[in-house]
C-alpha cells in the first residue's frame, strides 16, 4: 500500500503543536514509516505541494491566509486541524473583542500599513470557519498520544475516535481532588476530554483549550459558583482564554 503523503502548514500560532510532533523523538521513525512527510518547515527544508493529508496549525487572521488555506484544502484529500488555534481559534480569538483597526492602532500606532497584505487582518477564525475540516486534533498544545492515535487511524482507514465527553471523566479516573473543592474554577466539566486531564492532574484548572461541549443552564452555573464561593467574572475570564465569543451558558 502506498504511504499517504503528509504536509504540515502553519498559520497564526506559536507552532508549538508542530513542535510536539517534532518532539516524538525516536517515534518519529515509526511515523515516517507509515506516512511520507513531504512538508514540515520545523524539521526539513524540502517542500512539496503533492500531498494527501494536510495538517494545519494556527488560526486564520487575514484574507491572504484564507486564500492559502482554500488552496491547501483543494490539494488535500484529508485536512486535519492541529491544536486549539486551528480547531477553535483559541487564544487568537481574544483579539476579536476589538475591531481590526483598533488592534492595528494599538500595536502599530499611526504607522501607515495601507496596501500591505501582511497587515490586512480580519476577525480571527478557526480553520473550520473557512474550509471543511475532516479531523480535529484538539488542545494547546496537542496531546502527542492523540496525534499518534489520529495518524494511525487515518493510516488504517478508520475514523479516529475523539472523545465527546468532558475532562471530568478522565480527571475522575485519575483520582484527582476536584479543583472546585480547592476553591478554583475549572472548565473540565464542559470541556472535551482527550488530554487525560493533564492540567487538573497537575493542580491547574482546565482552561477549555479542547473546546466547550455543553452550555449549561445559567441557574446551574450560578448554583455551582455559589456552592464553591466562586466569582462569575473569574469564570468569564477563564472561558475567554480559549473560547472567546462562545456563550458559556444558556
Amino acid at each position: 500500500m502506498k504511504k499517504p503523503r503528509v504536509a504540515f502548514f502553519d498559520f497564526a500560532s506559536c507552532e508549538g503543536c508542530q513542535l510536539q510532533i517534532a518532539d516524538l523523538e525516536e517515534e518519529i521513525l515509526d511515523l515516517i514509516n507509515i506516512v511520507d512527510v513531504v512538508s514540515f518547515r520545523e524539521v526539513m527544508k524540502e517542500h512539496s505541494d503533492d500531498y494527501d493529508i494536510a495538517i494545519i496549525e494556527g488560526s486564520i487572521m487575514r484574507p491572504i491566509d484564507e486564500g492559502r488555506l482554500k488552496e491547501i484544502r483543494e490539494n488535500a484529500k484529508i485536512l486535519v486541524a492541529l491544536g486549539a488555534c486551528a480547531t477553535i481559534g483559541g487564544i487568537n480569538k481574544i483579539r476579536n473583542q476589538w475591531t481590526p483597526s483598533e488592534v492595528k492602532k494599538e500595536v502599530y500606532g499611526n504607522y501607515n500599513l495601507k496596501g500591505n497584505d501582511f497587515f490586512d487582518v480580519f476577525q480571527t477564525k478557526a480553520v473550520d470557519e473557512v474550509v471543511k475540516v475532516d479531523y480535529n486534533i484538539h488542545g494547546c498544545p496537542i496531546n502527542r498520544d492523540e496525534f499518534k492515535k489520529v495518524i494511525t487511524s487515518i493510516a488504517m482507514g478508520k475514523n479516529p475516535e475523539i472523545p465527546n465527553y468532558p475532562v471530568c471523566v478522565e480527571c475522575k479516573k485519575n483520582e484527582n481532588i476536584c479543583l472546585f473543592e480547592l476553591g478554583k474554577f475549572c472548565l473540565g466539566p464542559i470541556t472535551r476530554a482527550g488530554c487525560n486531564s493533564i492540567c487538573p492532574t497537575n493542580g491547574s484548572p482546565c482552561d477549555g483549550c479542547r473546546g466547550i461541549l455543553k452550555k449549561p443552564e445559567v441557574e446551574c452555573i450560578n448554583d455551582i459558583l455559589e456552592r464553591y464561593n466562586l466569582d462569575y467574572e473569574e469564570m468569564k475570564r477563564r472561558c475567554n482564554i480559549y473560547n472567546y465569543g462562545k456563550e458559556v451558558c444558556k
Binding site: C168, V169, K172, P189, L213, P216
Partner: peptide, 10 residues
C-alpha cells in the same frame, strides 16, 4: 442542571 460529566458514575 446536569453537566453530563458522568462524574457520579465514575
Amino acid at each position: 442542571r446536569c453537566l453530563e460529566c458522568s462524574s457520579c458514575t465514575m
